[in-house]
Design a protein around this nucleic acid. Sequence first.
DNA 1: TTTGATAATTAGGCTAGCCTAATACCCTGT
DNA 2: ACAGGGTATTAGGCTAGCCTAATTATCAAA
Lengths: 231, 231
Amino acid sequence: MSAAIRSPQPPLTRSVEDYLKSVFHLTSQGGFATTSDIAAMLEVAPPSVSGMMKRLSETGLIEHVPYRGVQLTPQGRRAALQMIRRHRILESYLTSKLGFDWGDVHVEAERLEHAVSEKLIERMADALGEPRYDPHGAPIPTAAGEIEEAELVTLAEADVGGSVILQEVDDEHPERLHYLAEQGLTPGVRLRVIERQPFNGPTIVRRDDGTTRVVGQELGLLLFCRPTDGE
Amino acid sequence: MSAAIRSPQPPLTRSVEDYLKSVFHLTSQGGFATTSDIAAMLEVAPPSVSGMMKRLSETGLIEHVPYRGVQLTPQGRRAALQMIRRHRILESYLTSKLGFDWGDVHVEAERLEHAVSEKLIERMADALGEPRYDPHGAPIPTAAGEIEEAELVTLAEADVGGSVILQEVDDEHPERLHYLAEQGLTPGVRLRVIERQPFNGPTIVRRDDGTTRVVGQELGLLLFCRPTDGE
DNA sequence: TTTGATAATTAGGCTAGCCTAATACCCTGT
DNA sequence: ACAGGGTATTAGGCTAGCCTAATTATCAAA
């Protein structure tokens, strides 16, 4: 029998925490996370991923189907959600309490999330009033490990003629986030989808203030929206 | 010739940062830091220290006199002071802004100091109003790398009959700090040294409110005081 | 001056994580 | 049914940091 369960679980290393987060994100739509996708996300070589997957499945954090991919076990999912909570609480705290720009908090949180205690995160969450979303609109898992799963559609594929609320934007790349802030494309804004150019062309939207924005397909794929029925 | 100077200096590892801090503390009274003292402080085996000392002197952060000990180079001192600034600003922030107990902040800061950016530390320092002392009374180096050097005497060796201001207490061991707080022995308090028992016995002090405290020698050696002339 | 205790260093090994090169597997298109 | 391209894994190596055991240096006391 395998010794997948250990009573005094050793603390996870930074690397392990990063791998778990990646697997979580890559499997959030269901299915398996592939070796090459994980490698690309973490910027390591595929054999490094294979090696780590072996170790993680031995410790019971993931389920590995060779040549297919991996999924999180309940234990792995719990750890991943804890990391994501840390990350998003940190991003929220840095923007709200220390005046950080929303473009800069991601990389800062990326380092801090491996060093903060549970206690510190809960103090920050408390100071913020237990926020439910981070500055980029991403839902923050609860301390108990529950996360809201919304059915969002990217702006690049939203129905032309319909209305959407911009809910969440990708949190990487400061320049992109600065641009979005300049354009007033921030979480919560209501947009009417006016038209979309063919051949993966840009989407044209109108804000409530009547101004319009032209959003290229690449950017549009990173803007997650909730369709609204009302005009 | 050796290549002690590299233009694009690689970021220091956590370990290196810890070694530099240790050497700084062990040489603060002048002289050399010995291998065994460093090993004891970092809780590693002496040969680990020898190995690291070799690497650090190759990168120009310390000066190593074999079989004697080590000292920081100006570059190493700068790096050490930066770490100490981080540590003390973090301790201050956690107590002032997030309601942490002064006994708990040391271990939290010990982990965070390796993960915070310069920018974050400066934001915290700003939010605190550029504090000059941390919660345990230790002076905080400036961002430029200057630190106040006070001539302090431990309570265990303060002149009997004289008065002192308790300036700084060791920041480790939460229980000890809790005890000190209970006893009202916190930085800033004025104490009159009433008597001291022989054979490394306790020191008896009187606070301004007239109450007295009996402080054993071991504890007294960790309470750093500034003698005052006035009654 | 020699000896012996103590401290420092060298020798040699281990793990976590990464890498490249070589090999094995899977699946799609013919 | 199988050949080939692409993906995954295995093999083998490297570095940082740690360890223990063996060796060497230093210094004080006889």
